[in-house]
Nucleic acid binder design. Structure first.
Lengths: 156, 156
DNA sequence: ATGAGTGCAAATGCTTTGCATCCTG
DNA sequence: CAGGATGCAAAGCATTTGCACTCAT
């Protein structure tokens, strides 16, 4: 992932290396705050600007994408970031907020070649397709009642 | 739509009637600010709280849904609201931000019964499916270069 | 009349920005 | 050693909330 940044002309600072190291192995779709919180111990002077800046650099290099899933209750909806560059869907748990990646063939309705489809009556040229499945994850289903629901990002 | 609100026990105030009247005929997926701006001339004292409150009431009555599509550039991503309660997809133009509804059968990949599918390895029980096609709309494709791109909500 | 709804303003939370300083390439 | 990157704090926005007042039912 670092090579990708370097190839694009981005400088590899210690902060970026740390962010990339953490983010690239993180399948939890962390928010900028999540990453920031985990980096602060090692980089007490780290700022949000740097986290966002690096995430943006990764996006420019095609090494990450962002997800806006909306809030669960009245909380503000933070952008979540995803290092998975393979085509995939997302499943979001309504209760605990966990987000899991789904390979494109794991459901009955694959998104296949819709990318090139030009939607008939509207003249749209489609470039990307994004499918979100909302429901309840296994953990929350087996749990008796709905727990207090902390601030997203479970099983961190 | 008003009946739906009344049936749910919501009071029909002049403000709500105006919001519902405007919103129910609006296929542009307006933001709260869009509606507010169009209502202010007739209701100089209208507040955002009332707009959000009414949109929330409509959502509770199952008469509208919300869309979080993310910002086009660095702007904050406003929630867009949709009075269309039929199952449908959304196509979003990367350039001008326009959002159009797509009937479920207008593309090769229908979302059909995925609602009841339990995604294999993850144990998720899926309740809703949401598909977003991103690309370029007919108008922007025919336009020579990329125009300055004002603050979303084109052809209002 | 009674409590849901309204309006206002302040608060909240995420994200961006300006600018002086730092440090990678 | 030049310009991209960082850190800090303040600014921006969308959205929510508290509270006193109003009005639909």
């Amino acid at each position: 992932m670092c090579e990708g940044l370097r190839a694009r002309g981005f400088r590899l600072t210690p902060q970026r290396l740390a962010i990339v190291h953490l983010f690239s192995r993180d399948g939890s779709h962390p928010t900028a705050h999540d990453l920031f919180a985990r980096l602060r111990p090692a980089f007490p002077t780290m700022s949000f600007a740097t986290v966002y800046n690096t995430l943006d650099a990764l996006a420019q290099a095609g090494l990450s994408s962002s997800l806006r899933l909306g809030a669960l209750s009245g909380l503000a909806a933070a952008t979540r970031f995803d290092p998975n560059t393979e085509p995939h869907h997302h499943a979001v748990c309504d209760r605990c907020g966990v987000v899991v990646d789904l390979p494109v063939d794991s459901l009955a309705a694959p998104q296949v070649d819709a990318r090139k489809v030009r939607t008939q009556s509207q003249g749209f040229r489609v470039r990307t397709v994004e499918t979100i499945y909302r429901g309840t994850c296994a953990g929350c289903r087996s749990r008796p009642s709905l727990p207090p629901l902390p601030n997203v990002t479970p099983e961190a």
